[in-house]
Amino acid sequence: MLRPPSLVNVTTIVKPTPKTRNGQDFFHSPKLSGVEVPRWGRSRSTVSGQSVCSIRGQGGRQERFKGIPMAQAVSSQRGPVTGTAMRSRKRRPFLLDLYSTAVGKKYVMAVTGIAMMGFVLFHMIGNLKMYLGATDLNHYAKFLEELLYPLAPHGVTLWILRAGLITMLLLHLHAAYSLTVLNRRARPVKYQSARDYQVATFASRTMRWSGIIALAFIAWHLLDLTFGVVNDHVGTKDADGLKDVYGNVVFSLQRVPVAIFYVIANVLLGIHLFHGAWSIFQSLGWNNPRFNKWRRTFATGFAAVIVIGNVSFPIAVLAGVVGN
């Protein structure tokens, strides 16, 4: 029987046994021809001299092995072994330095996520004005354009906020993209049998898809209600000479396919938030026995509020509650 490698002392000379127990010459079996057999010899003593408490005394010392058919492989090449021998990282500006690691990117995901959650919440609350009628909603839209006027010129505050949001979205996307690339690289060969997930939720498993569909919805939403590319009503003024935001919304959501897309995208956004809003606490290290049990409640509640509020608009328009 093969000797378990955990019993192999890595600092001693390890030589391959030429014959296996059943007499088959394993190293020269035709099955393995073309496989590089390593040079065997004394490996550099690899056990770090001081104060390194190794967690596992098993043979885990081989750094690089190519086509080694037996487990006793010991490579002569080794990297740094102690903390003091760590190669020093290039000094970078603080924020870039933070962003260079996966943990830092998760910070960016969390912070930009919070900013966009704030936007989504206030966007939903603002839209509730449509239940008060056209005058209220259109005046609210005017108020947003005139935010902080006359302290700031017309529309400037709104554009500063928009620029911030665009930056947040781009950072969120870039962090998500680069983390996905990193994660794909971390498991190039997938499990060949079915995984049986125990804790991961549907939401956590589908963050990429719910995010991409929500992004597609944002693009549509801007083309529809902001730029009016797919909405002929945009540009119309109401009785007070204000932009008829109310009319735009009614025009858009009376189209059934648009309303359905609106509902689907918002449910997916809710699923995205269900995991994201909880994830923020972990990623930012906000962990405290005082509020840990409320984190899930918060995420569920936040996602529910957003979904219920947003999904009510197309339903209200189609049901004729809004728009008469």
Binding site: A186, V199, S283
Partner: peptide, 28 residues
Amino acid sequence: FGSCTNHGECEGACPKEISVDVIALLNK
């Protein structure tokens, strides 16, 4: 290694049932 996306599968698989709270502490 890859990056943490807070699935919590690690905690479920850990033979010592170490909580994902340690990941929050790591991040902090």
